[in-house]
């Protein structure tokens, strides 16, 4: 309707101007140049401008998608690495704990072993010492017994001399000596054991 009004308006103007130009009827040159212009613009746009922009847009999309994919991969890799690291850490911890535990048991065993060995050694040494002491004591006792007897006899004979020649006197002296010895033996035995213990 607007167009119709416009046309009537245009007509009145045209009539007022007393020209015969009708704006709805194109001039030949108008069509010719319009055609040329539209063809040129169309060709340049559709053959060059728009494909170029499209190529850039496509490239950008590709790049962004590639970048996103890459980022995703990188993230996945990082996550995997982190998991692996954690696992390794865990494993290392477990291993360390195991080693520590082993070391502790081993150490305990070694200590116990050594202790046993030391106590064995000690008891052996003690036994050896005891045996040696016993042997020496016996040896001493043996040598004493033999020497004391002879020494005593010798000493007694020296002290008593020939007076012991007759049998009666001799037996009396011997008896007396034995009595004394017996008497001294009991006391010295008591003091002797005391001394040995001390």
């Amino acid at each position: 309707m607007i167009a119709a009004q416009l046309i009537t308006a245009a007509h009145s103007v045209v009539l007022a101007e007393e020209t015969e130009q009708n704006p709805l009827l194109p001039e030949t040159y108008d069509i010719v140049w319009s055609f040329v212009i539209v063809v040129v613009v169309g060709v340049v746009f559709m053959r060059y401008v728009l494909p170029k922009f499209q190529a850039v847009l496509d490239e950008r999309t590709e790049k962004i998608e590639g970048g996103l994919a890459q980022a995703e991969t990188a993230q996945a890799e990082a996550a995997a690495a982190l998991a692996e690291y954690h696992q390794q850490l865990q494993e290392a911890r477990e291993e360390a704990a195991k080693i520590r535990e082993e070391a502790r048991t081993e150490g305990g065993a070694i200590v116990a072993d050594l202790r046993a060995k030391a106590s064995d050694d000690a008891s052996r040494i003690v036994e050896t010492a005891h045996r040696q002491i016993e042997a020496e004591r016996q040896q001493a006792a043996v040598s004493l017994r033999s020497e004391v007897g002879s020494l005593a006899t010798e000493l007694a004979s020296k002290i008593v001399g020939e007076s012991l020649e007759d049998a009666a006197r001799q037996s009396r002296v011997v008896d007396r000596f034995l009595d004394q010895l017996e008497h001294a033996g009991t006391t010295s035995a008591a003091s002797g054991t005391n001394g040995q213990e001390g």
Partner: peptide
């Protein structure tokens, strides 16, 4: 001018 709209 009508020529160009006609071509379009």
């Amino acid at each position: 001018v009508i020529g160009l709209p006609i071509i379009f």
